[in-house]
């Protein structure tokens, strides 16, 4: 099985930040592999460990993205492609356009992506890419198996877990609920240094500026309005509970 995982480098969303003039400023510029993509890499690695094959990864971004690529290689991916570009101002549609150009002349049994990116929480790129490539897909996958040349994908749907047989080639967007991504071993980190990373440019992929025009743009960031400060009820448990029920009925009027 030949698998390719699309990975994204994102700011560490847990890190402290400020909003200055509608722009996000992190106190420390710390970038990480998107957690959903890490689960996608892990899911791909587990499949090839069971059934044989190779895992490759592709990432878009400036030179600093190489750190995130090394992380995926250290986890166990064998080869990487780095599409050098400045994606600031791009939207999901732009990213899908670039990835579609990358995959057009390459052949994989399956393409994996994270189900969304931690910074934008948009969740569009994977299914946009599938559509551009004319591939069948399953999104929000929480389980993966390989049977008779097909992937058996479990996805979390509205009413329960949907178990879907996906013919290959196909695309799967992966939830972080599928697995806990492995921490690279020292050996993996050492090996990653010697693994091939092929650099590509947008013109290598035949992409003009016109094709990369985004369809949406962020005009500014705002803090989430704080909730009105709440109240901690303290005292003897039975009394506290009585007071809570009274407040829910008489003050909040929700019971």
């Amino acid at each position: 099985m030949k698998l390719c995982v699309c990975i994204k480098q994102v700011p560490d969303i847990q890190a402290p930040f400020r909003i200055v003039d509608g722009r996000l400023q992190f106190d420390v510029e710390r970038h990480v592999l998107n957690a959903y993509d890490a689960s996608a890499v892990e899911g791909a690695l587990q499949l090839v460990e069971q059934h044989g094959g190779t895992v490759e990864v592709v990432a878009i971004g400036p030179a600093s993205v190489s750190e995130t690529i090394r992380k995926a290689l250290a986890m166990g991916a064998e080869r990487a492609y780095h599409i050098e570009a400045d994606p600031s101002g791009w939207d999901s549609a732009t990213v899908a356009t670039v990835l579609a150009a990358f995959f057009r002349d390459r052949s994989y049994d399956a393409i994996f992506t994270g189900k969304q990116a931690q910074d934008t929480d948009a969740g569009l790129t994977g299914t946009m890419l599938a559509e551009r490539l004319g591939l069948p897909y399953v999104s929000n996958a929480v389980g993966l198996a390989y049977e008779d040349g097909r992937l058996i994908v479990t996805r979390q749907g509205d009413a329960g877990r949907e178990i879907i047989e996906l013919t290959l080639p196909g695309l799967v967007t992966i939830s972080n609920d599928m697995n806990d991504p492995r921490i690279p071993s020292i050996r993996g980190i050492m090996q990653a240094r010697r693994k091939p990373v092929e650099q590509l440019t947008l013109s290598d992929l035949g992409l003009s500026d016109d094709a990369l025009r985004p369809q949406t743009r962020v005009t500014g960031y705002r803090p989430v309005p704080p909730r009105a400060p709440g109240r901690k009820l303290e005292g003897e448990p039975a009394e506290v509970v009585r007071e809570l029920v009274r407040l829910l009925r008489e003050e909040a009027r929700v019971l």
């Binding site: 969740g123 929000n140 979390q156 749907g157 369809q215």
Partner: peptide, 23 residues
Amino acid sequence: STEAVKDVLGALAARVGAAALPD
């Protein structure tokens, strides 16, 4: 924005050439 809608929104936008504003 249900799980079923999340499953098709990006693909539908790409198919009909629309901009998508998710969630």
